[in-house]
């Protein structure tokens, strides 16, 4: 008897083929080696690295994290070894995994730094895609690139000329209309958008009368932000044609499915990696089961397939 093929979890994001749609979010998975031994990394759909800048960055003043109701604030401040050390020390381990590797990059002072980074990474065949972190809330900037549709458009247009690699634009939820920014990214040639980055937040120690974070405020993540993220994915899905990588408080299969139904083609697990390093693999098998049980052959049968709620 021929074994019935299992459900097809593969998805395409621009030129990027993923064997399954479960990735790990930038900043929550280090450079993967930190998780070696805690889960079978090769089973992940893709890995998005911690953001790299041109020069090494020491990051923000501690304390850098604090727990909040069903969530956490962080203000790491893009601590990273810089592109040279990343390529020399971190990339070899990632290459060996044989799964798509997505490098998150950011500029510190001048958006032109994105171009320098993209040109460097474009030459490295082991790198599958570049994620543009234009939405980090912890750089003490008055305005982020992703808070301005024109700046977003200008940056991605410039980068599009420099690389044919899959470009993923990571969007901030701290905006009036995230769909407008997503549209600008699409028009400029971004292959996909990833949303949401953390929500700006602050927590106060009333006994000490100080903020709980050394840099006063930070980015909120975890299940507390999930409904905000799901709504934004749904809004963006209804406005754009390029694929969406959905994230924000995904803790299990059910929460991952919310994002697919809202219109995400793939999802990223973020804060949950800190609590349960193996959760992404549980979600992959949970998705397989959900699809098998529901007779769903392909993920495209559920992406954005929301029905009206009738009481």
């Amino acid at each position: 008897m021929v074994k019935k093929p299992g459900p097809d979890l593969s998805v395409k994001i621009g030129s990027l083929h993923l064997k399954n749609p479960v990735m790990v979010a930038s900043g929550t998975f280090g450079y993967a080696e930190e998780f070696n031994g805690l889960l079978d990394l090769k089973k992940l759909g893709a890995i998005v690295t911690k953001t790299i800048t041109i020069k090494p960055r020491q990051g923000n003043l501690p304390p850098r994290t604090c727990e909040t109701p069903s969530g956490m604030l962080n203000s790491i401040g893009l601590e990273n070894p810089g592109i040279d050390k990343f390529i020399g020390d971190k990339l070899p381990f990632l290459k060996k995994l044989g799964i798509p590797i997505i490098i998150s990059i950011a500029s510190e002072d001048d958006p032109g730094e994105f171009c320098i980074l993209a040109e460097r990474l474009d030459k490295i065949s082991a790198i599958s895609a570049i994620e543009l972190n234009i939405s980090c809330p912890n750089l003490q900037k008055n305005k982020l690139i992703s808070q301005d549709a024109r700046e977003t458009f200008a940056l991605i247009s410039a980068l599009r000329k420099l690389t044919r690699k899959c470009l993923i634009t990571k969007l901030s939820p701290n905006v009036t209309s995230i769909s407008d920014i997503a549209l600008a990214a699409q028009e400029a040639g971004s292959d996909a958008v990833a949303l949401i980055n953390t929500l700006a937040g602050m927590s106060i120690d009333v006994h000490k009368r100080t903020p709980k974070l050394g840099s006063w405020s930070g980015g909120l993540s975890g299940p507390a932000i999930r409904p905000v993220a799901v709504k934004m994915v749904w809004d963006v899905y209804n406005k754009i044609k390029i694929p969406i990588i959905g994230m924000g408080g995904i803790m299990d299969t059910e929460s991952a499915l919310e994002f697919f139904l809202a219109g995400a083609t793939a999802i990223s697990v973020g804060t949950a990696n800190f609590i349960n390093p193996g959760i992404s693999l549980d979600i992959i098998s949970g998705l397989e089961k959900y699809m098998a049980d529901g007779g769903i052959q392909s993920l495209s049968n559920i992406i954005g397939k929301l029905k009206e709620c009738k009481d």
Binding site: P63, R64, T65, F274
Partner: peptide, 27 residues
């Protein structure tokens, strides 16, 4: 002792300042 998010060196949240820069208390 520090508040930690992950405890295994991934989040870079629990750093302390040392002569050779920030180091992770957890790792």
């Amino acid at each position: 002792e520090r508040h930690m998010a992950c405890g295994f060196g991934a989040c870079l949240g629990c750093v302390v300042s040392t002569k050779s820069g920030y180091k992770r208390v957890c790792k």
